[in-house]
Structures are given as C-alpha cells and as structure tokens.
Amino acid sequence: MRCSRRSLLRLGAAACAAAAFPLTAGAQSGTGKVIVPYAPGAATDTLGRLMADLLGTATGTRYIVDNRGGGATQIGTKAVATAAPDGLTLGFIDTAFVINPGLFGSALPYDTRQDFAPVSLMATAPLVLVVHPSVAAKTVAELVALAKAQPGKLVYGSAGAGSAPHLAGEQLRQAAGIDIIHAPYRGGATVLNDLLAGHIQFGFTTVPTMLQHIRAGSVRALAVTSATRAGQLPQVPTMKEAGLPAVDASPLFGLVAPAKTPQPVLEKLAAAAQAARSGTAQARLSELGFTPVGSSPEEFRARIEAEIAKWTAVIRAGNIKPGE
C-alpha cells in the first residue's frame, strides 16, 4: 500500500506505515475480531468499535466487534486469553481489567499479567464528582466537612461493587477519613436517575454521561479525577487542586492480545492503535469526552502494572469483596 497525503492526515504516520504490512500473508482477505466484555451500547463498546475501525483501515484486515458480556467482564476477557495468538482475536478492555486482580484474586479464570500481551492504551476518561443541588456543598472541602459533621449519612451510588465509580468513592473515603455509604446498583442508568431525583447525595461518573445535567444545574460538579482539568469542564478543579490527589480514578481503555502473540504482529497492531492520538480518531475521542493516548505496548504494560497495584491496595484497605 502507498500512503497518500490524505491517508497520512487521516490515520497518522504510524498507522499508515502499519497499513503497508498486513498482519499475516492472508490477512487482507481475512476477518479478525475485537472482543468487548460488555453488551452493546456501553462506553467500552463504543470505543471498541472505533478501535476495530482503526485496525481495519491500518492493517488491511476487517475487524468486527464480538460482544461477550457477563461475569464482571471475566467471560469476554477469558475468551481473549484462550484465543490463538495470531493477531486476529484481540480484546478491548477497560478499568475492570486492572481492578479484577485485586477484587477476585486467584478466582479469576485467567492471569492478568501472564495471559495477555498489552498492545496500546487507547484513551482515558476522567470521572467527575457531582452532588445533588440539595447537598450544601459547593467544593470538595465543603463535602468532606459535611460528611464529617454527619457520619454515615451521605450516600453515593455506583454501577456495582468494584466499579471505577465505587472505588473512586472508596479513595475519597480513605483519603478524607470520612464515613460515607456506598449504594451499589445494577447499572449506571439507575444510579443516574436516583442521583437526579435526590435519592442519593453524590457520586462519581464519566464527564460525557453527566455533562448535560451539570450544564442544566440538575447536579453540581465539584472536581474531576484526572491530572488536568477536563476540556469540557474547564471551570471544575481537579481532585489534586481540591486537596485530595489520592482520588485519581480515571478509567482507561485499551487493546490487548493473547500472550505469545509474535512481536512483529504486536508492533503492527500498536502502530495502528496509535492512530487514536491523531486525525479524525483523536477528534472523535475528544468529542466524546475521552483523552486520546495511543501508547506503545511497553507503556501500556507499565500502566497496567501500576493500576493493578493501586487498585489492589485500595480494595485491601477497604476490605472490599465482590458483590458488596
């Protein structure tokens, strides 16, 4: 394949270079799949489909999304671990991938560190701490003071035990030394409805999910969990600026392959994935409220190790068990 100027602008140089070299001799006529361990419609599914498109454009292989939800992402993730290491079956993972080792331990049906080859961290997304307008707190410091004045009274919701919003609340509890109540729900939509109705007082959620409600005044944004302020909420401080840098739960989204996938294949996949940090892919990710990354395999492996260590420590300190 010859890279035109239009291709370079659209894909980025790294992905365009990868397009010149199919993964396997027959890859251009074959079909690969990206396993997403969720049902269609979730944020991870949306990004997984974008990733499949990037891989297809850059490698010459058509990638389809294979949704395999259930088991706290374990069903789909195990399917990746046991797939042939040929670059044609990949996994698109999120923060559950790095939380589950601390949450489930040896009960996991795979080894997170040994059974996968990291390819690229595609993007991250800050969580935003929001409160119902009835809560008399306009800053994180005021929320902490309120919680200390009313121990065991303030309730925050999440989509389930061990989810990133749950553990963000646990980070807040531990860092601020406050007594707050976690209410686990079966899905994010129910959490949102109860928060908007004032049945729970606060919560952590993704910026895109809550942006329209923040702008409408239905909830009040106190801080974001990213290292820098969110582009869509420039007036909202970071948790570090608010005095609690330990609250740093920012969901990640990335591509992994089965262990023993050949290094040349990993490199070509990574070059394709790095298109996430340029061109239309970068613009689309930013539009959706994500921070494009497009890391190397080595950088992603280091991030995975750091995240596993961080979340395992939070889970142990909070004595958190699956299903609680």
Rank of each mutant, 00 (worst) to 15 (best):
Ser7Pro: 01
Arg10His: 03
Ala15Gly: 07
Ala15Leu: 02
Cys16Met: 01
Ala17Lys: 09
Ala20Asn: 11
Ala20Tyr: 04
Pro22Ile: 14
Leu23Pro: 03
Ala25His: 14
Gly26Ser: 05
Gln28Lys: 14
Gly30Cys: 13
Pro37Tyr: 10
Gly41Cys: 07
Thr44Ser: 14
Asp45Thr: 08
Thr46Ala: 11
Thr46Val: 14
Gly48Met: 13
Gly48Tyr: 09
Leu50Ala: 09
Thr61Leu: 08
Asp66Lys: 13
Asp66Phe: 00
Gly71Cys: 13
Lys78Asp: 09
Ala81Asn: 14
Ala84Val: 15
Ile93Gly: 10
Asp94Met: 06
Val98Thr: 13
Phe104Val: 00
Ala107Thr: 10
Ala107Lys: 11
Pro109Leu: 12
Gln114Tyr: 10
Asp115Ser: 08
Val119Arg: 03
Ser120Tyr: 10
Leu121Pro: 07
Ala125Arg: 12
Val131Gln: 03
Ser134Ile: 08
Leu146Val: 04
Ala147Val: 02
Pro151Tyr: 06
Leu154Lys: 02
Ser158Cys: 02
Ala159Lys: 01
Ala159Ser: 08
Ala161Ser: 01
His166Arg: 01
Glu170Pro: 01
Ile181Cys: 00
Pro184Asn: 03
Tyr185Phe: 11
Gly187Asp: 06
Thr190Glu: 11
Asn193His: 11
Val207Ile: 14
Val207Ser: 07
Pro208Asp: 06
Pro208Thr: 00
Gln212Arg: 15
His213Phe: 12
His213Thr: 09
Ala216Cys: 04
Gly217Lys: 10
Val219Tyr: 02
Val219Met: 10
Arg220Ala: 04
Gly231Asp: 11
Pro234Ile: 06
Gln235Asp: 14
Thr238Trp: 00
Lys240Tyr: 10
Lys240Ala: 13
Val247Cys: 00
Asp248Arg: 14
Ser250Asp: 11
Val256Trp: 14
Pro262Ile: 11
Glu267Ile: 02
Leu269Met: 04
Leu269Asp: 06
Leu269Tyr: 07
Gln274Pro: 09
Ala275Ser: 15
Ala281Thr: 11
Glu287Asn: 08
Leu288Ile: 03
Gly289Ile: 05
Gly289Cys: 13
Gly289Leu: 03
Thr291Val: 07
Val293Trp: 08
Gly294Pro: 03
Ser296Arg: 12
Pro297Tyr: 02
Ala309Pro: 08
Trp311Phe: 15
Thr312Glu: 06
Lys321Met: 07
Lys321Cys: 00
